[in-house]
Design a protein around this nucleic acid. Structure first.
Length: 461
RNA sequence: GUGAUUGUAGCUCAGCUGGUUAGAGCGCUGGUUUGUGGCACCAGAGGUCGCCGGUUCGAACCCGGUCUUUCACCCCA
């Protein structure tokens, strides 16, 4: 008996059965759509070598990696000099592994390791937790699940178009009506940097311009100025803002002129148009799909299309995001493989559906019938009945202890079990079972066969 | 990583400027009802006031540290 109350680490959570039922609803919905589009499931380990993970997410990302201390005498390799030099020198000698930060990089590692066994294009999905040493906040946890779907080994823009369709299908299944799938292209952003005369600074441009919605143009231009953008460059950027309330088509027309001098920019626009064209051919409706030229996204490995999905009316960050990465496997020694993928954030989707009160009131995961027995003889007979019920595919349980019937009913009530089957002396001698519908309160004495059909298809009023 | 913020019974919260045995509602357990849950009534159990240290005759309350919660920034699912 420990006196001290146990606890869990910062940003980690337990999920009780009610929460798990709802989380599984989200997982199942997403997996179903992934499979419908030909994606197959893959799992990779929680831990990767730190060398696999570092340098893929930008400097900020590297700092958010959870490092795992080497086992054994982990200080052995550290010299006094290393120690005096600080963490930078000590870290690589005491930690060689880390927890995965996303599912895309481990997937790229997998593709390189198994390059000769894989049939391309390779479509896989992955539903696993990832870890980030971030400060927790609403909608931001240190351990959370991602549902990733990626295709590698093709640069066809049909993949991008299909991603849009998949996102729309998932949201339709959840019954979400008000949301925006923002789509942009890193090449368009590069083109923007080029035409304003700040080639090579697209990183800073992205970070600043991404905040436009949040902090407004004035603050964004201030930030750009501080990052070393010239006044002329910032002024040259302002026409982009004018496209704010236009249609996707009008925005494309604008950028054709705006980016005319930039070959990357033109390429990006072509890709955008093609994605939207394929999307239309797949029967996609452009409702909810927004070409957003100021969408940037932080991860450094994206090179083509980028996506992000936000739900209106809730103060929760994006619930889905992704993009194309042309050379992610390159850093692991396999160049020339293009990939595109996206991910749903289950934990945020949960918060969104919860805030909007949109979870179905399903009881799919709970017991359908509980056996309540008056004594030992009844209970022993109940065990046989229990086995029959389960054979019939009915989720059933028996109250294991010989306690007052009232207590057994209480248990069924608390657990929201829709039926209680009662076994007493009378039932035992008549070879019957009294079945009570806990919602209606009605009770009938039935044969076992009738109990099975009644539980499966309730007819009792 | 920077700046704030929170922590009292299983849950939601009271607790006046530091003063005797820390309270409520809900929940829980038992009973009224030894073949029936939800309702009602009655009774009961549960807290070294996040943790460690300090100030004080005396700390849930003041001070310091630490952990945790929430929030803004950074960044992100």
């Amino acid at each position: 008996m420990s006196k001290q109350k146990p606890s869990i680490p910062k940003g980690m959570r337990d999920f009780d059965p009610a929460e798990m039922a709802r989380r599984n609803y989200i997982f199942d919905t997403i997996k179903e759509v992934f499979k419908l589009f030909g994606y197959q499931q893959l799992e990779t380990p929680a831990m990767e070598n730190l060398s696999t993970l570092t340098g893929k997410y930008g400097e900020e990302g590297d700092q958010l990696l959870f490092k795992v201390l080497n086992s054994g005498e982990f200080l052995k390799k550290v010299s006094k000099d290393d120690f005096n030099e600080g963490e930078r020198n000590v870290l690589p000698k005491i930690a060689e592994k880390g927890l995965r930060y996303d599912l895309t990089v481990p997937f790229a590692r997998y593709v390189v390791m198994h390059q000769n066994e894989i049939t391309y294009p390779f479509k896989r999905f992955q539903v696993q937790p990832v870890w980030r040493a971030d400060r927790p906040q609403k909608g931001r946890y240190r351990e959370f699940y991602q549902c990733d779907a990626d295709v590698v080994g093709t640069d066809s823009l049909i993949c991008e178009a299909e991603i849009l369709v998949m996102i729309k299908q998932v949201f339709a299944k959840f019954g979400l009506m008000d949301y925006a799938i923002k789509i942009n292209n890193r090449k368009i952003l590069s083109g923007m940097a080029e035409v304003i005369g700040e080639t090579g600074k697209e990183g800073d441009l992205c970070v600043a311009i991404d905040k436009l919605d949040k902090i407004g143009w004035e603050k964004v231009s201030e930030e750009l100025f501080q990052k070393g953008f010239s006044k002329e460059a910032i002024a040259a950027l302002s026409p982009v803002l004018e496209t704010n309330h236009k249609s996707n088509f009008e925005r494309l027309q604008f950028f054709k002129e705006y980016l005319a001098q930039s070959s990357v920019g033109r390429k990006g626009l072509e890709e955008m148009e093609e994605v939207l064209a394929f999307f239309a051919m797949l029967g996609g409706n452009e409702k909810h799909v927004v070409f957003d030229p100021v969408l940037a996204r932080g991860l450094s490995y994206y090179t083509g299309a980028i996506f992000e999905v936000k739900v209106d009316g809730v103060q929760i960050g994006s619930v889905s995001g992704g993009g194309r990465y042309d050379n992610l496997t390159g850093v692991f020694g396999l160049p020339g493989i293009s990939g595109v993928g996206f991910s749903f954030g289950v934990d945020r989707l949960y918060d969104v559906l919860d805030a909007l009160d949109m979870f179905p009131v399903q009881q799919k995961e709970s017991t359908q019938v509980m056996l309540a027995c008056f004594g030992e003889m009844e209970r022993n007979k109940g065990l046989k009945i229990l086995a029959t019920l389960r054979e019939a595919g009915i989720a059933a349980e028996i109250y294991p202890d010989l306690v007052k019937i009232k207590k057994q009913f209480n248990y069924a009530d608390k657990k929201n079990i829709p039926f209680v089957a009662i076994l007493g002396a009378e039932e035992l001698s008549n070879e019957t079972i009294s079945l009570k519908n806990m919602k209606t309160g009605k009770q009938e004495t039935l044969s076992l066969e009738r109990v099975i059909s009644e539980v499966k298809n309730p007819t009792m009023e």
